[in-house]
Nucleic acid binder design. Structure first.
Lengths: 227, 227
DNA sequence: ACCTGAACACCGTTCAAGT
DNA sequence: ACCTGAACACCGTTCAAGT
């Protein structure tokens, strides 16, 4: 006659689970940023104690990994397209948008790639890009090089872009922000930074997405020479 | 007749300075990793109080930025070569080796690039690569795209590589480590990860530096089509 | 098996006080 | 102007105790 032991409810509250914890972590990261994810904020949001979270998750690192993996897994759906080059562009844009929506992914993905043993997201990203590379007819000996180049460009450029988007003040618009970056770069020492100053002009009013895809096409052009 | 006010010495100890603090921070990062850099460890090493450090440096973030900038500035010396493609390879290898020597640069550079306003290292890297891009005869409208693609690949691939190198256990050799990664990848689900499993074989016994440079050449091949 | 919440060790930062 | 070091607020993690 005590409460049911189905595990589904506990005093009316929703039962705690790894999924619920990861979900709350993602919400916290999205709304409060990387520094906003603390076990104290998490316990408050989930109305529980810190020990309860540690029952489902080993530590904060594992929680961050799980949050990253969940978002990336939901993002990387198989592209439906005939041309593998369009497939690569689709994967790239999917990741671009995911990073735009969850800026904390930038740091997280960088640390995951530069860490061994590789977690589950590295093969995920590798597989999504690599399949298209294979379909493209790239010789097998170049698969690793090609896929790595694409992956690093996508993650790096998307992260840089998310920063630009995020830095736009709620009030001000995007062009004004780019102008301010351009101004800062144009104030650099002409002797030491001639190139950077020259390129600063191109920054003004440039289209993020187009710029990002132009980089993809540059690498695709390099790949085309491998056949 | 009190102590001299030259500021050069204080009770026999070397005077504290921003440079000494940054130097100690780099040593700490190199020997104890990112988590090893704490103000307490720093005060001990410099035989001072925490307040003294805060007199020269605003906060931990600024200290990390300064450490990163110091290492990158010392790394990026103008390459002495006629062929701009060799110049790009030289810059890439310089950064590759710097990251190998200071693995904490990976995270630091990723966060610096994906943050606004950009700190001093972003223009530094941009300038070093971009000058060679310009000399290469790339049309000005493609300068930003080209330089970004190279920068992101270099930073990403070098970071991934440093992780592999760092994961090699002191006792075991590098081939054994790569074997273990390969084994892990080959254990992935054949239905979900056919590409990653196939590419795992290439990982066994591959040459880091050669692989890294192959990626550079891939992008250079793409750049060549722009002319 | 799953959860509670106090306690611990550690961290970045501040600041009144010294020289 | 530059340094000392105690104090503060906050953090990840543990664990005896409960159900």
């Amino acid at each position: 006659m005590t409460s049911p032991r189905t595990g589904r409810s506990r005093r009316g509250k929703e039962a705690l689970s790894r999924e619920r914890i990861v979900g709350a972590a993602i919400e916290l990261l999205d709304t409060a940023g990387e520094s906003g994810l603390t076990f104290r904020a998490l316990t408050e949001r989930l109305a529980t104690g810190s020990g309860a979270i540690y029952w489902h998750v080993a530590n904060k690192g594992e929680l961050l990994d799980a949050a990253t993996d969940a978002v990336v897994a939901a993002t990387l759906t198989p592209p439906v397209t005939r041309d593998p080059r369009d497939g690569i562009r689709a994967v790239a844009l999917d990741l671009f948008e995911a990073i735009e929506k969850h800026p904390w992914l930038t740091t997280q993905l960088a640390t995951q790639l530069s860490r061994t043993p590789w977690s589950s997201v590295t093969p995920r990203i590798f597989e999504a890009i690599g399949r298209q590379v294979r379909t493209l007819g790239v010789p097998e000996s170049s698969w690793f090089t090609t896929t790595s180049a694409l992956a690093h460009y996508i993650l790096g450029a998307a992260g840089q872009n998310a920063a630009n988007a995020g830095a736009t003040e709620p009030g001000g618009n995007r062009d004004e922000f780019l102008d301010s970056v351009t101004d800062a770069w144009e104030k650099l020492d002409p002797d030491e930074y001639p190139f950077t100053r020259a390129v600063a002009r191109q920054l003004r009013g440039h289209d993020d997405r187009a710029q990002f895809l132009a980089g993809i096409d540059l690498i695709l052009a390099g790949i085309a020479t491998l056949r």
